[in-house]
Amino acid sequence: MINGHLSLFKQAFEEVLHEIGFADLTYKAAPEMNPPSEAVATIGITGDIQGFLLLRSDTKSLVAFISKVLANMGMEESEESFGNFQREAFGEILNQLSGRSVMLLADHGFECDITPPTLLIGANISYDIRALDDFLNQDISGGFGKINIFVGIKKAKEWSKKS
């Protein structure tokens, strides 16, 4: 069971992904804390909750995911590989996920903001996730493959005082 702050992040992810056309996704706790990734998008969280969100994937799954997003919007893809458009779309999807998370947190009395997204592309990218107070590590699977969403909270005002 995911409690407190983290349940709002999970709710935000499910809402946004459903809105962009992904109704049949599987959400599972990820077996690895730091899975090898070829693409990582990250956004920082500031304010009452401090931490970060990571969206991690292999490029094959990510290209298939973005192709599905475009198809759901009635658009055709112009690139078949992981090019500039896919990179921008990857960052924008994380922007939407984090923006919805901050909105849900605000509904519960938490004042937070997000930083601009940062994209990392390469082989076997890893991320230092030590010294966290709490985290959510979920694999999201569908016809496109698998994407990992990680929320790391370094500092947060108490949930019980805000809910």
Rank of each mutant, 00 (worst) to 15 (best):
V69D: 00
S98F: 08
G74W: 02
E79W: 05
T59P: 13
L104A: 07
R130L: 14
G122C: 11
L55S: 01
L97Q: 01
G74Q: 07
E80K: 15
F13V: 01
G74Y: 04
P35S: 11
V69Y: 00
S141N: 03
F90N: 09
G142E: 15
A23S: 12
F82C: 10
N3T: 04
K155E: 11
E77D: 07
E111T: 08
K154C: 12
T42C: 09
N124T: 03
H18R: 03
F13I: 01
M1H: 09
K161C: 12
E77G: 13
K157V: 02
E14Q: 08
F150N: 13
A41W: 01
A64T: 14
T115F: 03
T42V: 10
G4D: 11
Q50F: 05
A106T: 01
M33V: 07
G21A: 15
E80H: 09
K161L: 14
G44S: 13
D133K: 14
S37V: 02
D113L: 14
F150T: 09
Q96R: 14
Q96I: 12
M73D: 06
N3W: 04
Q86Y: 15
P35R: 02
A39N: 07
F135N: 09
C112V: 04
L53F: 02
A64C: 07
G47Y: 05
V69R: 00
A64W: 01
S141E: 02
L120N: 07
N72C: 10
F90V: 14
L104T: 01
H108E: 10
A156S: 13
A29Q: 07
Y127V: 13
S78G: 14
M103H: 08
K68M: 05
D58R: 06
G51Y: 02
I45V: 15
I140L: 08
